[in-house]
Amino acid sequence: MTLSLRMRGAIVSLLLLGAFLGAWHLAVGGVSATQVMDPEYAKLMGITATQGKSAMPGPLDVGRTILTHLADPFYVKGANDKGIGIQLIYSIGRVMVGYILAVLVAIPVGFVIGMSPVMNRALDPFIQILKPVSPLAWMPLALYTIKDSGISSIFVIFICSLWPMMINTAFGVAGVRKEWLNVALTLEVGTLRRAFTIILPAAAPTILTGMRISIGIAWLVIVAAEMLVGGTGIGYFVWNEWNNLSITNVITSILVIGVVGMLLDQILAWCQHLVTFPE
């Protein structure tokens, strides 16, 4: 019996996951009491010292925590204790606002760069210098000028999403096949209609590639930005739980961040599939 490639891949995936979880479980499990000590002192030291149990939570602990978070993701118990769902909504909201603003700027500017060789040369040095700057380096400037930590992180998302989209749009627009442009020219299609009916669909797959790179970067950056500015968001949650020494919650957050990042990427992959045309 031969299983399909997909099935075989899934089986190996599950085996790898099982092996990892098993090794994790064994590695953090306690062995036995390490020292004989006064019960009062043992209470102070906690199970780490008395049972040789690692401070690292095991997969079962993390599993239990995930279930509690899933059971009540939106609780609010004060400013520093909000459910992981609420924190995610804050982060996703910031990413969306910053990202959409970046789309609104990057795609038109990318069009101009791609369609005009002069603008391409004129803007190239700015892009080349600004692109490699870590988006977090903008944070102090943003905080100083905007004076609002939430909007500052949105600005950081905006600035980091900008470049891949702009460069890919310009690249896609400049690379539209000459014969398609000639079709538009011989049909006396005006510049604006040409941009929307020929250049946009022709460059759309390349533009979507840039948008996909951007959303990935934005999701990476939001965690770091929220760690820096604090208050709300999944990045802040991670840092807060680190201060609480709740490694279980930190591991849970890592998983959640990964899953959300994957979903964002998949959404754009699906959009990319929609605009891709077979030649």
Binding site: R177, E179, V183, I198, A202, P278
Partner: peptide
């Protein structure tokens, strides 16, 4: 056109 130049989308 020689290469038909149809818009593939």
């Amino acid at each position: 056109f020689q290469g038909h130049a149809l818009l593939p989308w």
